[in-house]
Amino acid sequence: MRYVVCIKQVPETTDVKINPETNTLMRDGVAAIINPFDMYAIEEGLRLKAKTGGTVTVLSMGPPQADAALREAISMGADDGILLSDRAFAGSDTWATSYTLAMAIRKIGAFDIILCGKQASDGDTAQVGPGIAIHLDLPQITYVRKIESIDEKTIVAERLMENGYEVIQAPLPCVLTVVKEINEPRLPSLKGKLAAKKAVITTWKAADLQCDPKCIGLEGSPTKVVKIFTPPARQGGEMLKGEPSEIVPQLIAKLKDAILGAAN
């Protein structure tokens, strides 16, 4: 079985602020990490491989520095890494990103399961996984919290819904997006770290993927960011002081109307 895990490199914290003077994002010195949800996708790929045999390939589209994310995945146990890096990919929205990743997965050829994180912590869209699935005309199981069974032809997985979970059966190949509940990602082993150091990361450009130039980067992205701004800052509010027996009635007085209103 061949597992392909799509991982994105993101800033380590979402604590980015906009410099009010220059109106620019301040993220100096913020380290880059693997998107938290993608760690669960990597781990699940490795667990599936342990069960069924096969290989885990990690795939990322991003700047040359994303090489580090792929190596980290290899240090956890992934077999190989592919980096899609080309200036022509600049300005990609989720349409173009999922197209480009899908073209790369096509080129990889024989694959059984594509794993993605539920969403990336910078854009928070959760659109790329299903986007890859439709570009490749594949079934999808999103928000997977558990894989119940897998064999060469079929997978049965639980999808987390707002009010419970669904059990879904899909034929392979299939795209999965995973949530945190699915597993606990492992730490890299010493052997893995050595392998990561030595690994040769394959790099593909747009031309290697036979991408339609109209479908990648800026040109392939229907959406356009027209403005970026800081949300109105939340003011620290009022501290209620006194003994609990004094504070509680104060709080109730303040919340009562809102609670009665919320009930309607």
């Binding site: 989720t94 349409w95 197209y99 299903p130 439709i134 959406t223 356009k224």
Partner: peptide, 21 residues
């Protein structure tokens, strides 16, 4: 969960832009 899973597929196929959340 349903909405995000669903329209991500639709937007790709009809060549539309999709803005999340």
């Amino acid at each position: 969960t349903i909405g995000r899973s669903l329209v991500s597929r639709v937007a790709v196929r009809v060549n539309a832009g999709l803005t999340a959340d």
